[in-house]
């Protein structure tokens, strides 16, 4: 418990750094007033607008105000949606979350059997095939894979919807697109750890007890190989969020990724800032959860 509280305190400096960077980049990217006012606005009108928005103050003061407001959940108004920026972001969060969970499920469903299989059949044709497929899986760009899947399953075979969100069928292609790279990495990781675990003494003990291969692999070996898998999943969450920008755009998935792209195009900076900070918090929370999960999987790990 004290560990959790301590870890939560460590989150604060991380968030301050992230917020500073986000603010800095938006600041450097130029003056939003020019975009907000009509082209024929007079100099006086521009000055007035800047004063209203507080843009005439020094950089560090502006950042201070931004930070104070952000702590209160106020990221300012989105000038496109004419709503609270945070509200828009939080509204989109569940869709991204859903896609993320689906792609993690897809990738573990693919990776666990393949990783285990290539480990127990190592240096055979099966292993070679799985290993080279996983290199391919890792190498394929998201947007290309997404379009190819759409071409095959939606256009040619007409089995699945092209884009949008609604039924479970809408989820399949985006989840595969986002999960493939992760599945590839998980497979390779699991293979190498499984090979190591299978040569351990306790596996020999399990065999000497007369246990069958299935019990040995899934009860004795897999749990010992899960630790690095959890680490990868946690680390890949941030990659998944990055990938969501592309996947969500390809499939018109109404999540954070699509929102952030649209907001950047429109220079809707309040929304961009809120998006990035929400994602940062999300990634931090996931990593904390992964740390706590280690303890469940491996009783030897102690926090302190």
């Amino acid at each position: 418990m004290t560990y959790i509280i301590r870890r939560l305190f460590q989150v604060i400096p991380v968030l301050i750094i992230v917020s500073f960077l986000v603010f800095l980049f938006v600041y450097l990217s130029g003056d939003p007033v020019a975009l907000m006012l009509p082209e024929d606005a007079s100099q006086a009108e521009i000055e007035n607008m800047r004063k209203v928005l507080g843009l005439d103050k020094p950089f560090i003061v502006q950042y201070g105000i931004f930070l104070l407001n952000a702590v209160n959940g106020d990221f300012g108004q989105s000038f496109i949606y004419k709503q609270e920026a945070l509200g828009i972001v939080l509204e989109r969060l569940p869709a991204t979350f859903e896609l993320m969970i689906a792609s993690i499920i897809v990738s573990t469903i693919i990776a666990i059997p393949l990783g285990v299989w290539s480990a127990i059949r190592r240096n055979t044709f099966v292993d070679l095939f799985i290993s080279s497929s996983s290199i391919l899986g890792k190498a394929m760009p998201n947007f290309w894979l997404g379009m190819m899947l759409v071409l095959l399953f939606s256009v040619t075979l007409q089995l699945l919807p092209v884009s949008g969100k609604g039924t479970i069928y809408h989820l399949i292609l985006p989840a595969i697109t986002a999960g493939t790279a992760m599945a590839a990495q998980l497979t390779r990781m699991l293979r190498s750890h499984m090979i190591e675990v299978l040569s351990q003494d306790y596996i020999r003990t399990a065999r000497s007890k007369g246990l069958g291969s299935f019990v040995i692999i899934f009860k004795h070996a897999l749990r010992n190989s899960m630790l690095p898998v959890i680490t990868i999943i946690a680390l890949q969450i941030s990659t998944l969020v990055g990938g969501a920008l592309i996947t969500e755009t390809v499939f018109s998935w109404p999540g954070l990724g699509q929102l952030i792209i649209q907001a950047i195009h429109a220079r809707d900076m309040a929304v961009v800032q809120a998006c990035v900070l929400v994602i940062a918090v999300f990634v931090i929370v996931v990593n904390l959860l992964a740390d706590l999960l280690y303890r469940v999987v491996d009783p030897r790990i102690k926090y302190n």
Binding site: T205, G210, N224, D298, R300
Partner: peptide, 24 residues
């Protein structure tokens, strides 16, 4: 042979820390 292992003939190994599964 699986019916013999651990049932009629069983083994004790050298290093009990590594011979026991750490997560069970």
């Amino acid at each position: 042979i699986k019916k013999i292992r651990g049932n009629e003939i069983s083994m004790i190994f050298q290093e009990p820390l590594s011979a026991l599964n750490p997560v069970l």
